[in-house]
Amino acid sequence: MLVKLNTENIVAVLIFLFFFVYPVLVDAYSVMNLAYFLSMVFLSLSLSLIWGYCGIFSFGQAVFFGISGYFYAVFTLNSGITTLTPLGLILGVLIGGVIAWILGYFMFYGGVNDVFVGLITLCLTLVLETFMGQTAGDQWMIGQVNLGGFNGINSIPSLQIGSFILTGNSFYYFVLLILLAVFIFLKWFEFSKLGIAVVAIRENRERTKLLGYNVPFIQSLVFAMGGALASLSGIFYVLWGNYITPSAFGLASATIPVVLVAAGGRKNVTAALLFTVLYYWFSQTLSASGSEYALIILGLVLIVAILFVPNGLIASLFHAGDQLFFREHSKSLLRKKGAKTL
């Protein structure tokens, strides 16, 4: 598939070029900050995939984020063998995906959809936060690892491939390369056979069933893929800070990705990526005077976005750019790729 020349793709290329040269331009602290932002981008992309592409509205990405983060911590600390950390990462992502599949299976085959998925996943997130918060004490040991209640788990080992420990720039580039791979996959997926079925499900679930598609299966599959991406985010977060606490399951963790994706443009992965990085950068910049300001501004941006640009701020800018520079006037959700490349 040829890459189409449009505003979004040009911006995406520029963003990734910028990310690749960023460590040359700034100090190590800023690089690790961006590594953190990029880790959180996976969470936004997971929501972009399930909500933006497939129409499944979920507050539950924090569940998979937290579970896999905790799994990686428990697995690697118990094994004590640092060369097994990549296995911890792979298993953590798989476990997140499998749990999402099981949850999705019961919801979608049980006919649960729309706002009820949001409610169930939000409840699950909060239940897990409460549960993990009370795990202080020796009775909450898994192997040699104490779950640690509100204090969570500290000193979680960094990723080690062979004898090479990924910290600093190497960790940053590792996250960036995986992000690039995931990003390219999602761009490809959007126009794949399954991706087109997924868009059909988002637009009209009942009709899609009547075209012979096993809708609950596809929904469960996409939900599992979203769970795996959120898990990747959780494990990168753990690798970045070497700790995890129950706040990973908290209300903020559950809602911020939803707001970021909605305000940036939920049907557009580049918009989700860009808006997430901008938000976390902004949040960090304001952190000296209290990061709550960032949340207030994010709230205002969301209100403005919903009122005036329901397709998202960044996605609308892309669309305006296309009209201005590429004379692209199609309003098709698949952006008129249909006739030529679909």
Partner: peptide, 27 residues
């Protein structure tokens, strides 16, 4: 068994080709 419902169940925000592609690609 295939159906055309009473109220059109087409995908309004997609093109005619894209609508047909969704239906055709599965079979």
């Amino acid at each position: 068994i295939s159906i055309k419902m009473q109220t059109p169940g087409v995908f309004g925000e997609l093109t005619v080709y894209e609508n047909m592609k969704i239906a055709v690609q599965h079979f």
